[in-house]
Design a protein around this nucleic acid. Structure first.
Length: 535
RNA sequence: GGUGCUAUCGUCUAGUGGCCUAGGACAACGGCCUCUCACGCCGUAAACCCCGGUUCGAGUCCGGGUAGCACUACCA
């Protein structure tokens, strides 16, 4: 039986979407698209105490930015015919609602089913009592061997159970796990995993305190009802997969149980352990797609988008952290990923987060963007850096031209400023190291003469380029200045570097005639003049 | 502690018993280019966790160690 591929990404709205979660979403998306299936987004908000305002919106916006499209569920409102609402978190689909907190009645029904079939029971032990038990008995586990000593519907008379429930006493419903059974889970990435039911405790499925199920129950019920065919999630879920298999069986849904694929974890770049927000702060890189202002604890987390990353670079980078095509290809568009992705080629071991490679990917994608587009993206940076009177006169075509000269040396759009600032404002000071190395005793004399020489060049010739016999071009200014240097027997490097310092403020930057071309004759001469006075 | 998963250059990884004197990419280092700094190009260094077994032959299969990670909540 081949059934329609339907996968889900099911985050909980407890804060910004972690980059590992983004990768999980990506792999789900690639798998769905490759098989012509559906990508659902379901919000798992069964822990009312951990809800963070804005987290849902954040998740939708992040996926949108990255180009991971939702077909059904939360955030799929745009799929609606003539969608009137632009509610970011609106939902679409005939298997909703897609927010677990809105599915209470559904869960009631299935909790009762388990209760009636004898697969679950009521338990009245308070959190304090359980905590005390754990203190008293090392490695205490609520299971077949201990449930008989606890306070639940298996040990209490029926009337007592009814009385407690009627009195509004807080209770939970626990899953009754039978001991001594080897449970087989087939994982698409790892193969068969076998776990004995003895090590699984009687998991809480439902808590009356907030009238909500726990993850385990909600997850199984929803995946079944939403006809999910493949569960692709992080490796941290592998230990509870056997429990899920048991739940499917208890419901009588074994035949349509989804296939499982547990993804390797994203690890810290240094040392060991899961990648966390703290690692990003400590090592200076984002671990979230977008900047996030947590209204609950007031913290602000940096994001890839705000750091100047292109979404396609983040996608490419993430895709290769745990998955690899058979060849040596490094650059993949989303379409190529959809075509080539396969769960069989996902690695089994955790991947240390190689932030440097992320930078490299962004560099590659930045080179692919046109100068005009980069200019548009760079304008806001300029607006911030420049005096408003200066910014008013900035010409975007000129910006594009400048970007064409310097883009190959940056990884991010904001870095363009460091490479191009001298095109917009004359140097205010001169780099100490450059001066020491490149400013010679004769430099003032050279520059005075050079200034005179350049003054004699007409405005028209200033920007002229000649076509040489070999097909390359050369700046006309080159044919003016080089012979002069040769005639005077000055060193080319000595003159040109001092000249460069006048224009740039340091010994760096693109070809010098490309700079003078953009600066223009007047500004060039002015900068030489200024430098001669200041240095 | 228990259970499970994993194990190739510093990092991401290729490798599905002979094509492996182990390939690619990032990072590092060196050279070239050059008026400078970059980019780019070329090159160098760098790995099969250990011990057994199977086999004519093991990075690749099996067993045992070791190590790392995950899980072990009325969190997801």
């Amino acid at each position: 039986m081949t059934r329609k591929v339907r996968v889900r990404f099911a985050p909980s709205p407890t804060g910004a979407l972690h980059i590992g979660g983004v990768r999980t979403a990506l792999y789900n998306y690639l798998f769905a698209r490759q098989h012509g299936g559906d990508m659902l987004l379901r919000i798992e908000d069964t822990d009312s105490t951990r809800f963070v305002p804005g987290a849902e919106e954040y998740i939708i916006e992040a996926l949108q930015w990255l180009g991971i499209e939702i077909d059904e569920g939360i955030g799929a409102w745009s799929k609606k015919d003539g969608a009137k609402t632009h509610d970011l978190c609106g939902q679409y689909g005939d298997k909703g609602p897609y927010r677990q907190s809105e599915r209470r009645e559904i869960y009631h029904r299935y909790v009762n089913q388990l209760l009636e079939s004898g697969n679950a029971y009521y338990a009245f032990d308070t959190p304090e009592e359980l905590e005390a038990k754990r203190q008293e008995v090392p490695n205490f586990q609520y299971d077949a061997h201990t449930r008989g000593t606890m306070c639940n519907s298996l040990t209490l008379p029926q009337e007592e159970v009814d009385r407690r429930i009627k009195a509004g006493e807080k209770y939970v419903v626990r899953f009754k796990v039978e001991p001594d059974e080897d449970i087989h889970v087939n994982d698409l990435i790892r193969g068969e995993v076998v776990i004995n039911s003895n090590i699984i405790d009687d998991k809480v499925l439902y808590k009356s305190a907030d009238d909500l199920p726990t993850y385990h129950l909600a997850n199984i019920v929803d995946d079944h009802l939403m006809e999910v065919s493949h569960v692709i999630r992080g490796e941290e879920w592998l230990p509870s997969a056997p429990l899920h298999v048991l739940l499917y069986r208890a419901f009588g849904w074994s035949d349509t149980m989804p296939e499982f694929a547990h993804l390797p974890l994203l690890l810290k770049p240094d040392g060991n352990g899961k990648l966390s927000k703290r690692d990003g702060d400590r090592l200076g890189f984002p671990v979230f797609p977008l900047e996030f202002h947590n209204q609950k604890d007031g913290t602000v987390s940096s994001g890839y988008r705000e750091s100047g990353y292109f979404p396609e670079a983040v996608i490419n980078f993430l895709a290769l952290l745990g998955w690899h095509a058979s060849g040596d290809q490094e650059m993949f568009s989303m379409d190529e990923l959809i075509q080539q992705f396969s769960l069989e080629r996902v690695s089994k071991s955790g991947a240390k987060f190689d932030y440097e490679k992320g930078r490299w990917f962004n560099h590659q994608y930045l080179q692919l963007r046109s100068d005009e587009e980069l200019a548009r993206l760079f304008m806001p940076v300029l607006e911030k850096k420049l005096d408003s009177s200066v910014y008013q006169n900035v010409n975007i075509e000129k910006v594009a031209q400048i970007i064409g000269l310097v883009k190959d040396r940056v990884n991010f759009v904001p870095e363009l400023w460091e490479q191009a600032c001298f095109f917009f404002e004359a140097p205010m000071e001169y780099d100490e190291k450059s001066l020491k190395k490149r400013w010679k005793e004769d430099s003032p004399k050279h520059l005075t003469e050079l200034s005179e020489l350049l003054s004699s060049v007409s405005d028209e010739d200033w920007t002229r380029k000649n076509l040489k016999e070999d097909g390359t071009t050369e700046w006309l200014l080159d044919t003016v200045v080089m012979p002069w240097i040769a005639e005077k027997e000055y060193g080319v490097g000595v003159v040109m570097n001092a000249f460069r310092i006048c224009l740039v403020g340091a010994a760096r930057g693109p070809h010098i005639w490309a700079i003078t071309d953009i600066l223009g004759k007047q500004e060039t001469l002015r900068r030489i003049d200024t430098a001669l006075r200041l240095i």
